[in-house]
Amino acid sequence: MPRIERLRPDHAPALLSFERENRAYFATSISDRGDTFFARFDALLHERLAEQDEGLAHFHVVVDESGAVLARVNLVDVAHGAADLGYRVAERAARQGLATAAVREMCALAAGAYALNTLRAVTTLDNTGSRTVLARAGFLVTGEIALNGRPGLRFSRDLSTADAVPPAADAVLPAGRATGQESGSAAGLIGD
């Protein structure tokens, strides 16, 4: 069963494979990371882990039983009780409910372990999968935005209410807990 894990240095090989194998797939819905990302992967990962250690971000991977990365889901620009949510799901895991489950679990982690009150996200208008995932996780449209010249939407999720999206019964759960499976497309993501 897939499980969500906080990003660690030992995830590097599986994470790099995930990014390489899905590069063309991701580029169909968000801008390509570029060759520099792959050439500087180790240094960039080190920078992201330093941000995480400082509490500026919370990076996660969703892994299968073998440790292969199926998705990443992250909270960046953490400040004043709020953060930006981003995620991307491997093509082989898409359209199975994984993205919705992972985003719901991230909402629960954000409200609980990370003591956040608000999550924000953005996606393009033509990314129906991400818009659906965000809606299913309780995000509301808060405005319009241009993303790389494409029309998009801003979303927000209030986590401060008593009913702040507990994970669904089939949610991707932290390591050691049983879980179900699903997936979707990418919203705004880490490594950018």
Rank of each mutant, 00 (worst) to 15 (best):
L119H: 04
G34L: 03
V73Y: 01
T28N: 13
R120H: 13
R88T: 09
R23E: 02
G81L: 04
D32T: 05
C107Y: 05
F59Y: 15
R20T: 13
A113W: 05
A83R: 11
A90N: 06
A57R: 06
H60Y: 13
A102K: 05
L109Y: 01
L109T: 07
A101K: 06
G81K: 08
L98K: 02
R48A: 14
F26S: 01
L98F: 04
F26H: 11
F37A: 00
E47S: 13
G55W: 11
V62E: 04
R95S: 10
A57S: 12
C107S: 09
L70T: 02
E91R: 06
D84Q: 15
E105S: 14
I30N: 01
R40C: 13
Y87L: 08
T36W: 12
E47I: 07
S29P: 06
F37K: 03
Y25M: 12
R48F: 12
V103H: 14
A14T: 00
I30H: 04
L49Y: 10
Q52C: 11
A71Q: 00
A111G: 10
Q52K: 09
D32M: 00
A83M: 09
E19V: 10
L109A: 08
N74P: 08
E51I: 14
S29C: 09
H60F: 14
A101H: 10
A27D: 15
R23L: 05
F59V: 11
